[in-house]
Simulated scan of single mutants.
Amino acid sequence: MTTYDLLATCASGIEALVGKELKDLGYETQVENGRVRFSGELKDIARTNLWLRTADRVKIIIGEFEAKTFDELFEKTKALPWDAYLPLDAEFPVSGKSHKSTLYSVPDCQAITKKAIVDKLSTVYHRRGRLPETGAKYPIEVAILKDKVLLTMDTTGPSLFKRGYRTEKGGAPLKENMAAALVMLTNWRKDRPFHDPTCGSGTIPIEAALIGHNIAPGFNRSFLSEDWDWFDEAIWEEVRTEAEAEADYDVELNITGTDIDHRMIEIAKRNAVEAGLGDTIQFKQMQLADFTTEEEYGVIVANPPYGERLLDKEQAFELYKQMGEVFRPLETWSKYILTSDLDFEEHYGQKATKKRKLYNGYLRTDYFQYWGKRPPRKNN
């Protein structure tokens, strides 16, 4: 079986999470900015597409080399074994990016990369003129950083955050893989209560439920590489069958989501049903100020509407103050709040135990963490 050099790409700030996910799946990893390297066979490509919760894409590394001239870029690209990946009728759009490199014109780099691949395939397939490009899609990216060229091919298609359960969104939706990251950065365990007081369309509670039930996040969607004629359909069937067997549908979870907007609660309920989790999560219309609980050692995760999103700043500040008043008495609960307001602690009324910088799209945010008291140790 062929072994491929692979990349799992991700948002800045959660590379370590993606690395941990891959290690938990049994892979050796190398964590870099915005991506994690690993290697595997075709089954591993299918498996990681199906299981990675916090990554964006799984890509095959076709080649890496240094290039400071367009001639170098052309010749070194052409020398790669493109025919091992691209059939005669392959549709292969080329995207690109360049940073701190001699070859800074991205359109030129894309055009030269495309020309080099066409040249190689035309020679191998004894074809003159244009290639048909009428078959399956094989997206290529040429990425140049400090004159080092990285050529990759996307196996995923639409980003991994597109789980397929979101029937409708709110005004400023959180991507599913970022919601999963927020849950995975907490101390939540499936035997403890989980609550999202500003749940919107329900993404954070749904991702928590997928984690709690050990359901593969990509189980109900398809992937671009399923259309490739050299990627055996039986491999995809095998990994889906294995994922189905690993899901724990019997575990009882205590997951709730509330929101002031009744329309968002209805959307959240529909999304949960679409994800197969309609009976797992309790969604309810409620003002944040009305939240009370007798339960202990739970976890609150909130992505409140902040200034750049839905509320004006004064409304956001009032909401943060209210959060502090409602959450502070819950001494055994841990609270995790994502916002782009770096002065959040001042309005909340308490210094965070820990802060973590994350990017919600291109927006810089901080994840403010308030750790609750630990439960007493059980005597054996």
Rank of each mutant, 00 (worst) to 15 (best):
A8T: 11
P132G: 03
N220F: 06
T293V: 04
D56G: 07
E28Y: 03
E226K: 12
V183H: 02
S105L: 09
T167L: 15
P305W: 04
P304W: 05
A234M: 03
E141V: 09
D147C: 07
P81E: 08
A243K: 09
Y249Q: 04
D229S: 15
G157N: 08
A275S: 10
P375N: 04
I281W: 03
W230V: 02
I112Y: 08
S340M: 10
L160E: 03
E325D: 10
D119P: 02
R221A: 12
G218H: 04
L17E: 09
L86Y: 08
A84P: 00
A245F: 04
T280D: 11
M153I: 14
V118A: 13
S39W: 10
P81M: 05
K169W: 10
M153K: 11
T69L: 12
A272F: 08
L80E: 09
K137T: 14
A316V: 04
R270A: 14
I117M: 06
G63Q: 07
K137F: 00
Q282H: 14
C199F: 07
E346V: 05
D71A: 12
R263M: 06
T48K: 04
T69N: 12
R166C: 05
K100Q: 10
M153F: 12
K146I: 06
M1G: 12
A172K: 08
E252Y: 06
L150K: 11
T203I: 10
E66K: 15
V118T: 12
T156S: 15
A245K: 15
F161I: 09
R192D: 01
K357R: 13
N271L: 09
R37S: 13
F231L: 15
P329V: 07
A316K: 01
Y297A: 05
I14D: 05
A55Q: 05
K68T: 13
E294A: 08
D290G: 00
Q282D: 11
D312I: 11
E274F: 01
N177I: 04
E266Q: 14
I144T: 01
E75A: 10
N254W: 10
E32D: 11
V142M: 07
A11Y: 02
N33C: 00
D229C: 10
D290Y: 01
I206S: 07
Y125N: 09
L7E: 11
M264A: 14
